[in-house]
Amino acid sequence: MKLNTEPNIAQPDDFYQELIDLHRDLSEEQSRQVNARLILLLANHIGDMEVLRAAMQAAAEES
């Protein structure tokens, strides 16, 4: 399977707001923890190592 980077979320603005809301009132440290847990949960859901590698690489390339 390939990493899908085409639009895939039906209501993107809703998702984005909920992601930001998730971190409201959290300290930087708490946010880091939430993000780490979120990455692990999503990674396990995807499961496909090829997709995960492509996502990690795409994330690294933007920095």
Binding site: R32, Q33, A36, R37, I39, L40, L41, N44
Partner: peptide, 24 residues
């Protein structure tokens, strides 16, 4: 590193309720 610590702690946080994290 701080990020390595964060992922390690995240695995431990999730392990109690989420079976996938126990394997990590």
């Amino acid at each position: 590193s701080a990020v390595s610590q964060a992922f390690r702690d995240a695995v431990l946080d999730l392990a109690e309720n989420h079976p996938f994290a126990r394997r990590l």
